Computed example of a mutant assay.
Amino acid sequence: MLAEDPTLGEHGYGVYKGWTKTPTDRAAELRRLREELLSHRAEIDTVYDWLVTNLSPIKTLTECSYSLKHIAERAIGTYVSNGQLIAAALMAGYPTGRPRGHNVLVAVSRRDLKRVLDGRWSRTF
């Protein structure tokens, strides 16, 4: 997953305020963020399980990864980083858009999303 997305790290794509850093500092920060993301494999697996249990993938990009991360946090009951959400969505095969800043659009069913937001989601994942 990370090999396919060389700029994906714990907080999503890229480095926060990367334009203010030297290329060397930007590269070092991205390496650190990627290592941090890799160290959270168990959390990514939990988000993956929640996604595939509750939100069907569709073709049309519908929801921002940052919004989905907050929805997943409420459902799972623990912190989820933007990068963890994106990594889980990619692992599960959900279509995603091109990065916009740290975020991407993810193609999830709006009907399923409404069901989750209404509190009617599966707690067994």
Rank of each mutant, 00 (worst) to 15 (best):
V52H: 05
I44P: 00
L37F: 02
L38C: 06
A3Q: 08
S65P: 03
V52G: 09
R123V: 13
R111V: 15
R26K: 13
A3K: 08
S67K: 09
T53C: 12
T46Q: 06
I71Q: 01
A3Y: 05
V106T: 13
H70K: 12
Y66V: 13
S56E: 15
R34C: 07
Y16C: 08
D118C: 11
R74K: 12
S122G: 15
T96K: 03
M91D: 14
K21N: 02
V15D: 09
E29N: 09
R34G: 06
I58N: 07
S81V: 11
G93P: 00
T124C: 05
I76K: 03
V106G: 06
T96E: 03
L68P: 01
L90C: 01
H102P: 03
K114V: 15
R74Q: 11
E29F: 02
Y66Q: 12
Y13T: 00
S56D: 15
V106Q: 09
D5L: 10
E73K: 10
K21W: 00
A92K: 04
V108Q: 06
N54I: 05
T53H: 05
T124W: 00
P99T: 14
Y48C: 02
M1V: 14
A87F: 01
D118M: 10
Y13R: 01
C64A: 13
G12N: 07
T20H: 02
Y79E: 11
I58C: 10
D112R: 09
V15P: 06
T46Y: 00
N54Y: 07
V80D: 01
W19I: 11
T78Q: 11
T22M: 04
W50L: 12
R74M: 09
R110C: 09
T46K: 07
R41G: 03
R26S: 10
T62I: 09
R110G: 10
T7M: 05
D118L: 13
G18A: 02
I86A: 03
S122V: 01
V47W: 00
N54G: 13
A27Y: 02
H11Y: 12
E43C: 05
R31E: 14
H40S: 11
T24P: 00
Y94A: 06
R31M: 05
C64F: 09
T53Q: 10
C64K: 11
L90F: 00
E36D: 11
L61I: 14
P95N: 06
M91C: 04
M91I: 07
E63V: 15
S122T: 05
Y16M: 10
S65N: 05
D118P: 11
T124D: 13
